[in-house]
Nucleic acid binder design. Structure first.
Lengths: 225, 225
DNA sequence: TCAAAAGTGTTAGATTTACACCCATGA
DNA sequence: TCATGGGTGTAAATCTAACACTTTTGA
């Protein structure tokens, strides 16, 4: 099997998962204490090494599943990080993925089990190695794409109110938006459908619940929020 | 040195360079014949393995320098490719970089030396392994960013006419643009400065030469073409 | 003299922004 | 009854898109 490139160096390759969620008007990140050296007990993203017989994407999914029990989560590659000294232990290339989840789907008993916490993105503790710069890059990508790709719905439950939608949108972009203008824009998007259902959780009056319909995208219009 | 992660698999990690240029109204890609198996003689991107003691970025720069003799070229990471069977020889993770160069800066004697050709992006021959999908992704990224980042100047000489600028822009986006509207937009961009110089190469009348001034970006305005 | 590329303004339509009040309900 | 979040329209300003002719000069 090692017939062609025998003379070449081999390196450890890891995947690190940036798990983002939204709760309580904040973007949240799942981090845990490293359970082994180097960097034992430092706050860290959750990662794992890529096996010889698994693809990068499979490795990322495996790591995420180990961490969250969740499958079929939206995940995209953020990039590869490969400074020589990025890992204080040994040379490790890390390929970073970001997952967007609805926090309510996360089984919070896993927090204890894995020693994890949801931290606010903007008051995150120092992280192991170059993990903070990975998070920074992921957030930049999220901000760059939130208006042109239907990412935001991954951070929300399947049914959501327009106020929730707007709040997530504002939080990611870091700026306030006029409510009437926002709703006007939403109305032009066929892929955001009003349902007959009413949410009574967050307001006395009740708010209409909406749903994202990806089928009505693609063929017809481009996503543009 | 292998004290922490001994039990973990190590993999070959390569960098592949997508070298893009613009010439004769076309986006061009530098490709060559593979000079070793697997895939000997197939058209391919130029790549190399990442050494234990060099960063990904350094490896990409080294590969590009070997290939072009050029240093200080604009280069950005496109992403990591890691399917199990992507390389028919062995398991190889590839981190792809794209370089944007001014074709005139390229020493064309290197074409023969390395068995390279400039191919039109839209009539590219089949490429080795997954290299075509790498190129596709790079082009998508270029298109996505050409309007919001000052990438385009890397494809042009330091002094350029507005017709050249517009032509590159149209080619990357794959759509025609109204000349007067385009020039109106350029005039609002402080970072594109008119010089006193006149280009007599491409027209009898002569055209004003412009220059990109990155210093006038950043602080003042965002790039938006 | 003519072909080829450079250069230049105006107007209609579309999009974006700013802005404030009434509604329904549970506590 | 009142505090809370839900819901709604209009007008001004800005931005975008469509459009055609004159200039210069080398061949």
């Amino acid at each position: 099997m090692t017939k062609f490139y025998e003379s070449k160096d081999k390196l450890h390759v890891a995947v690190d998962c940036i798990v983002l969620g939204f709760e309580n008007k904040k973007l949240k990140l799942l981090i845990g204490r490293r359970r082994f050296d180097p960097g034992k007990n430092e706050w860290s993203l959750y990662g794992g090494f890529v096996g010889h017989d698994e693809s990068l994407k499979d490795a990322a999914n495996r790591v995420l599943r180990e961490l969250t029990g969740l499958n079929n989560i939206y995940m995209r590659q953020v990039g590869a990080f490969g400074s020589i000294d990025r890992d204080p232990g040994e040379r490790v290339i890390s390929v970073v993925y970001m997952a967007l989840i609805n926090v309510a789907d996360y089984d919070s008993s896993l927090l204890d089990k894995y020693g994890l916490i949801w931290t606010d993105i903007d008051s995150m503790p120092p992280l192991f190695s170059d993990h903070a710069s990975m998070v920074k890059k992921a957030i930049e990508q999220l901000r760059d794409r939130i208006s042109s790709e239907p990412l935001i719905f991954n951070l929300l439950p399947p049914l959501f109110t327009l106020s929730q939608l707007q709040l997530v949108y504002e939080t990611v972009l870091g700026e306030e938006i006029d409510k009437r203008n926002f709703r006007k824009r939403v109305k032009t998007m066929l892929s955001i459908e009003k349902t007959e259902l009413i949410d009574k959780e967050t307001s006395k009056r009740g708010a209409a619940l909406y749903r994202f319909n990806k089928r009505s995208l693609g063929d017809t219009q481009k996503f543009k929020l």
